[in-house]
Design a protein around this nucleic acid. Structure first.
Lengths: 203, 203
DNA sequence: CCAGTTGTTGAATGAACGTTTAATTAACAT
DNA sequence: ATGTTAATTAAACGTTCATTCAACAACTGG
């Protein structure tokens, strides 16, 4: 059937994506152990056997779910375009974008946080990403410190850690709220949080 | 057998505690769905049937695991003894004790964070606790603000949020490290983190 | 010392799990 | 058209799951 027949290759790739997205949804809702292959197959609208045509096992499926996504690129982009921009604006952008990324990738993040607690491989991978991002921020803040925009003694890494750590906690607690409440929380951190930190490291 | 026979009541209560602790360990390691009644029974050294003598179901068992523990009392004690103590010291005590509590109750916290992501009842309860603690801290900081120790415009609630939010993230990421590394992380936040916040709200 | 309560066992239950496999359908190349 | 390949199904596999239950052991109160 089908007048506009979709090429085989493309259809298969779409299926794969479909399965990944459904798996991510189910995994983030029920956790790895709580989600069943049957659940995921039903969400996609196919039978369980097909999932084994695309993925070796349940474990490999979960791995594929989050391995391909990263929050690093965003940060790189923000810091790359930060030359000449006032520190306060960069920090606000950074925090706002970080929170937005967490919110947009809610299911991935939630799965990651929950599974990290017991999947040491996942925890290690997550740690590597955090350290990579931290290094980017540290380098940036350090350059501003050398330029005199931040007072000499300030622990710039800690300042960024306070903001991003708080942002992560904020997401874990309020990340499921409706848009309006979430926006209020975000604005609070972006404005008042950044202001406190800023005064703390420039005073 | 047994010369010093333990009274029945006491023995039963000890069993109950034993089961609760074992369950908490297993739940925090494997998550709710990943932990089996068999796992827990084996950890205690009894058969599965016995668990149903003490608890109605797996779900009720998990509920009992964390319902009875709270981090609120600690905070109340610290803030109660804060009269006349410099703000910096109170904040340092608060952060250090909060981190210590997280570390000590590691399994509970981990289970709570992981399960909160998909158990809305648990999420709601957790939120209530956080708000209760936040209120305590807010009131304390507000009194210091009125006393002139904190500058008038500062968002004191946000300051506390930054510290505790960051502390929670720190625990989630580094909470499984060995003592030495953990202590270094704690000291970093207690000293540098509090310093930044302090300068941010007193400047 | 006995009756009754209660802690504890071990086996059994049906349901759900992850995974495999043979068969079926639909798209492709020739 | 035809034979090949890949997507997909449906049913089964053995295992493990949470839970139940009848039986037994051990302590208790009288």
């Amino acid at each position: 059937m089908s007048l506009a027949t979709v090429p085989r290759r493309q259809h298969a790739e779409e299926r794969r994506e479909q399965i990944l997205e459904a798996a991510l949804r189910i995994f983030s809702e029920k956790g790895y152990a709580g989600a069943s292959i049957r659940d995921i197959a039903r969400e996609v609208g196919v039978t369980e056997g097909l999932l084994y045509h695309y993925f070796e096992s349940k474990e490999q499926l979960m791995h594929s779910c989050w391995k391909e996504r990263s929050w690093h690129a965003h940060l790189e982009r923000i810091l790359a375009g930060a030359d000449g921009v006032p520190l306060a604006d960069v920090l606000r952008d950074m925090v706002r974008d970080f929170l937005e990324t967490l919110r947009t990738n809610g299911p991935t993040v939630r799965m990651c946080v929950a599974e990290m607690q017991r999947n040491s491989e996942m925890a290690a991978e997550h740690l590597k990403r955090i350290e990579a991002s931290s290094k980017l921020i540290d380098d940036f803040l350090f350059s501003r410190q050398k330029a005199g925009e931040i007072r000499a003694g300030a622990e710039v890494g800690m300042a960024a850690g306070l903001l991003l750590g708080c942002a992560q906690s904020l997401f874990l607690i309020w990340g499921r709220s409706e848009d309006e409440e979430w926006d209020r929380k975000v604005s609070g951190l972006v404005e008042n949080g950044v202001e406190i930190i800023l005064m703390g490291i420039t005073a």
